[in-house]
Amino acid sequence: MDIKGFAQKTVIVVILLCLAGVAGVVAFSMKMANYANTPLDPQGLERTFEVSRGKGLSAVAHDLEEQGLASHPAWFKLLARIQKTDSKIHAGEYILSPDMTPLEILNVLVKGRTILYRLTIPEGVTMVQIAALAAQAGFGPEEEFLDKASDPVFAASLGVEQETLEGYLFPDTYYFNKSASPEKVITTMVQRFHTVFKPEWEDRAEELGLTVHQVVTLASIIEKETSVPDERTLVSSVNHNRLKKGIKLQSDPTVIYGIRDFDGNITRKHLQTPTPYNTYTNKGLPPGPIASPGEAALYAALYPAETDYLFFVAKGDGGHQFSTNLRDHNRAVRKYQLRR
């Protein structure tokens, strides 16, 4: 065979191989498109599917097959790689169904459309109590929560230059997916605090000669002292007036916070036992918050009512009697506490 004939045959062979390759690519593309857009069972029912933290694509693809949601794990993995989402699947619980196509399932997992669980934190609870509530809701063990919330380096990373995050875990209703870690829960709560504590409030604190930490501390005392909305600014005024006059705050909730394993019964001995949080033995504010104050308590701490009140006593109906002097206060104590 001459050189010219060999060259012609070579060209023909190359063209045929190219055509075969193109045909193969087309066939593969059609198969992949068919797989990606065909549900496993058009009559299938919804079910819960969980992607655990740290679980890789291969394990997820096999779980989908085992639970009857998608077939051929290798094809599902390949689909994810073609979509460039093989490393973008989010952990959490999902509602999936066999009547969804593999591509639809993949999109749900990538977009993180998880089932959300509610966590409600009431005003006036402590960091320890919040850890227990988070653990009860399934967001990690209490110990892990408390370790993270008591880490000053982590607190600083969230904009709180304090030893712990007591007082900064803002009370609200939150929604998290099942896999949310204590770190995620804590971060969300502190971010919520920063959203509520507006820049103008920081300016107001400076105007009052207080740091933000002192405002949060005062607000936590107000939160614990009264549950009556209209009384918050009055309680705040009592504390502001006492601070200005150098009078000890004498707040029972601060004493209780400083007692380890408090049994619910505050005694004279408790009031006389020095702790950093005992405002009967120490002047001024305690070293930090004693609970998580809500927005209204924070506002009251910053904008107290203009009064001359220096005392208040519980009346037994949820409210308090306020007094400007010790004589009237003692009379109120006899009336409402001693019932004389």
Rank of each mutant, 00 (worst) to 15 (best):
S157Q: 14
T164V: 08
K111V: 02
D151F: 14
M127E: 09
W201P: 13
S237Q: 04
T101W: 08
D151T: 13
D172A: 10
V110W: 01
V238D: 03
H213I: 09
I222Q: 04
G159W: 10
A131H: 11
I221C: 00
R192L: 08
L234P: 01
T188P: 05
D151Q: 12
A156N: 11
G124M: 10
G112L: 09
L116F: 07
L116C: 00
T233F: 00
E104A: 15
S181K: 07
S237M: 05
Y117G: 09
V238F: 07
P102Q: 09
E200K: 15
H213C: 04
A149I: 13
T101V: 07
T114V: 05
K224M: 02
E223D: 04
L210M: 15
V185W: 00
F145Q: 10
I186D: 03
A134G: 08
F197C: 12
T187W: 01
G159S: 10
R113V: 01
P229A: 12
D230E: 14
V160A: 03
L165N: 03
S220F: 04
Q191V: 03
Y117W: 10
K178F: 00
Y94H: 03
K224C: 02
L133R: 14
L103T: 05
A205P: 14
I186L: 07
E163P: 00
T120W: 06
L119F: 03
I105A: 10
T164W: 09
R232S: 06
T114N: 02
V160L: 02
P199H: 13
S236K: 07
F170Y: 07
G167C: 03
S150M: 10
P152D: 08
S181Q: 08
T217N: 03
P122Q: 11
E231I: 02
V160W: 03
L218S: 05
T187S: 15
V160D: 04
T114W: 02
Y168P: 06
Q214L: 03
P171C: 02
